[in-house]
Write a protein that binds this DNA or RNA. Sequence first.
DNA 1: CGTGTCAAAAAGAGAG
DNA 2: CTCTCTTTTTGACACG
Length: 270
Amino acid sequence: MVNFEDACRGNTQGMSFYHTRDQEENGDDDLDDCFRQPEKKRRLSVDQVQFLEKSFEVENKLEPERKVQLAKDLGLQPRQVAIWFQNRRARWKTKQLEKDYDALKASYDSLKSNYENLLKEKEQLKAEVSSLTDKQFHKENVSENSETSKPMEPSQPLAQPDSVPETKTSTIICKQEDLSSVNSDVFDSDSPHYADGVHSSFLETGDSSHVFEPDQSDLSQDEEDNLSKNLRHVVYNFPKLEDPVYPDQSADCGNYEFPVEDQALWFWSY
DNA sequence: CGTGTCAAAAAGAGAG
DNA sequence: CTCTCTTTTTGACACG
């Protein structure tokens, strides 16, 4: 447990918590509390906040006993302490949501760029295949013209397309790793989330291995939709979208709600 | 208790 | 520097 004496020893040399800038007003505290007048709002002193923060780190919930003790230690009303904890929890949660959102967005951006790369690669391979097909076909025509005794199926040019499939396979494997790791990392986040109070979700477990550079370039809405559709095919082993249960989707993700414009994120959680 | 909100206080920005 | 305006932070409260 954090001891207030320890917490502030040395920095204020025994100065009490009442040394706020409007110290002289603190004498009114009792009066104010009795009459609940619209009292002028006073901020807690740095030391008071520090002490509360330490206490919050230890345990973010406040049992009545501790509330009274803290209030006593800090020279505050128990209600003030309760309100402080309430606010602190709420604001901590907001920050956490922001963090989680950023991480999700980063994952999404990363997936998007992976997908775009795959598309490019696919186009290249397509071009390569058609050029090889043409060459083959051309060859056959030439040989057919010179010696008409050798009929051959023009549709077999893919028999040995060099080493192309090799590279493609490795690429795909790589992508799959990315996807599955992202998938598990991100959507495991509905595990104790803020529930334990002190420690947050997956994001606060230090710097995750998914530190992506946010890609600011944005696709148009059409492209975005197209991307989302197509990715359902790219994400090989994800559940299919045949029977979507939209209303429950939030349950899978810690009850988070995302802005409408970011709902494209859901495509890979279906 | 969580959530949303208000409003005072503090911090920041910029013009003169 | 200081005055003013804007933005951010934070203590408090109401409501469900």
